[in-house]
């Protein structure tokens, strides 16, 4: 699935940096019905995890009221050069990952 990640390419040690993520997902609530009256089964992302060089720095639980293509923005402190890894987990065994690197001076 298409994913858009915004992590600053460079930061100074100790800087507070903003990370923004956007991922494709229909986020079907499970409350809607088809024209024929059948319930459309729930299909949402249920959790999001961000790891900074292997250490979890941010986690979020997502619920049916969250809009399609969830956008998440959060902050962390730039400690060392390395990699941010992102993981989205959802219904029906959904799993998607992405990563971005940062250089800390």
């Amino acid at each position: 699935m298409a994913t858009l990640i915004n992590v600053p390419a460079k930061a100074r040690r100790g800087d507070i940096i903003e990370i923004r993520t956007l991922t494709s997902h229909i986020m079907e609530t499970g409350f809607r019905h088809t024209m024929a009256g059948a319930l459309v089964p729930r299909d949402i992302i249920t959790s999001f995890i961000c790891r900074y060089n292997g250490t979890e720095v941010f986690r979020a639980d997502l619920f049916p009221a969250i809009a399609a293509n969830p956008y998440l923005s959060f902050f962390t402190i730039a400690k060392e050069s390395g990699k941010f890894e992102f993981e989205w987990i959802g219904d029906n065994g959904y799993s998607s990952t992405a990563s971005a690197s940062i250089t800390v001076e």
Binding site: A2, T3, L4, I5, N6, R20, L22, T23, S24, A68, N69, Y71
Partner: peptide
């Protein structure tokens, strides 16, 4: 204005593929 917050860009990425 911000291509990393514009959800339309997700479709552009799919289209590119």
């Amino acid at each position: 204005d911000d291509d990393t917050s514009n959800p339309g860009m997700l479709f552009v990425l799919d289209g590119e593929a």
